[in-house]
Design a protein around this nucleic acid. Structure first.
Lengths: 237, 237
DNA sequence: ACTCGTCTAATTGCATGCAATAATGCGATG
DNA sequence: CATCGCATTATTGCATGCAATTAGACGAGT
């Protein structure tokens, strides 16, 4: 795995000095988080301080602070004297995380129907349209990204920042693992149908129905994903 | 606010050298977390690096790493060039957090009824007995601690580590604010009655009922707490 | 007296150095 | 040939130093 070291560290530092004092660790954490969520730093990858500092143009102190942040977020594990690794979740871990996400969404569902604004619902509908376009175009990556976005937006409709924050963090932890499950065409088309119903229930503010639809949607999606992760079903996409 | 500086730094360092290399930041974070949750570092308190390093016998590097951890947990805020402060939640923040906690408990309720073991239920029952004893003895602090413990234990009955972890973290964030609401005797006795019903529903594995009981219990408790926080009701304990 | 500006001291952010630990290479031995 | 032991190297954990920024004291001007 490459760390993309900066080819011109003296000419264009990735963390320039101008007015960014005091945000170095947060900046590095964000960069690493993006790399982990993009799969550039795969689960189990060991993060060498030297390589990363050279690659990102910062010194060890802010990098190590970023490690602590990401460890608290559950994206890294730090073993004493042996550095940081990207967390590697077992199927059981993902199972538990998915159960939690489904629970959070079910809580959000009723709140969203009670408090979501028409503008927010329109935003979800617009995302849905874009997602369908991605499906038609066979753009799996774009589809998955927008799909995640839709679910986060539904949660955000609950107008509860704490709920949104927790959902975002827990969702991030398992993003890579969920992606695997979408690589099955039969599931893909069915998921879109489920999303149609979800969107309708949201727009009609049918809380209990939305809740049940999301529950089943999660159950279905995770069942397929689990089969793929356990190599019992081969992805056909 | 005092930082309890170590009176004998050379004779008994609070973070001794023996085999604890690599856990300094975690150790400091735990200590600070305890101090915050105990109210020794009240909301809004500014955390001076110099005072804390002198008080805890560590240097600034692990202390600053601990700050980052606690910031990620939502217990501190770090303003660039101006250091760390204990978070000060607005009533609206606490409101949102309580809604999230209620949601997490309602999710846990059904899972706990489905999966909790008889031993776990007995543990909850034992805690309940101790809590009642505290109420009889007028031990508000002990009551509150065991009360928190009971709720965490019910969530733990769901056998979902991710759910337990999130519940623990979010619960910690608002612990100090919830405590205020228990200082009203009328609420106190009613809360114990609600707990009796909750325990029964759990033991009888009546998921939907437990869910509803917890929802109402939260609603009632938080209503009183909010009144106290907003100074509309005077604590009588 | 109050406000504003300046200077100084204190504090924070980050870089770097040193010591402890773990990883690695290599020869000796079974 | 594989394995163990040891020395070397690399890496991590923490302490400390320096520069940037802020907070506070002090005095001039209104």
């Amino acid at each position: 795995m490459q760390y993309a070291p900066d080819p011109h560290p003296d000419e264009s530092p990735l963390v320039p000095a101008a007015g960014l004092r005091g945000r170095s660790a947060a900046h590095v954490a964000e960069r690493l988080r993006d790399m982990i969520l993009a799969g550039e730093l795969p689960p189990g990858e060991r993060l060498s301080e030297r390589m990363l500092t050279e690659g990102m143009g910062v010194t060890r102190t802010p990098l190590r602070e970023a490690f602590k942040i990401l460890e608290a977020e559950g994206l890294l594990v730090i073993a004493p004297n042996r550095g940081a690794q990207v967390v590697k979740l077992s199927p059981a871990d993902v199972d538990m995380a998915m159960e939690l996400l489904a629970g959070l969404e079910s809580v959000a569902a009723e709140l969203a129907c009670a408090r979501g604004t028409a503008e927010q619902f329109a935003q979800v509908a617009a995302l849905h349209a874009r997602m369908v376009a991605c499906q038609r175009a066979g753009d799996l990556v774009g589809y998955f990204r927008i799909n995640q976005n839709i679910h986060q937006n539904i949660v955000d409709c609950a107008h509860n920042p704490a709920l949104s924050r927790v959902y975002r963090a827990e969702s991030a932890r398992v993003r890579l693992y969920r992606f695997a499950g979408n690589r099955v065409s039969a599931r893909w088309s069915r998921a879109v149908m489920e999303h149609e119903q979800i969107l309708l229930a949201l727009q009609q503010r049918q809380g209990p129905l939305l809740r049940e639809l999301l529950r089943v949607h999660h159950l279905n999606g995770w069942r397929v994903t689990r089969l793929v992760l356990e190599n019992e079903v081969q992805p056909d996409l």
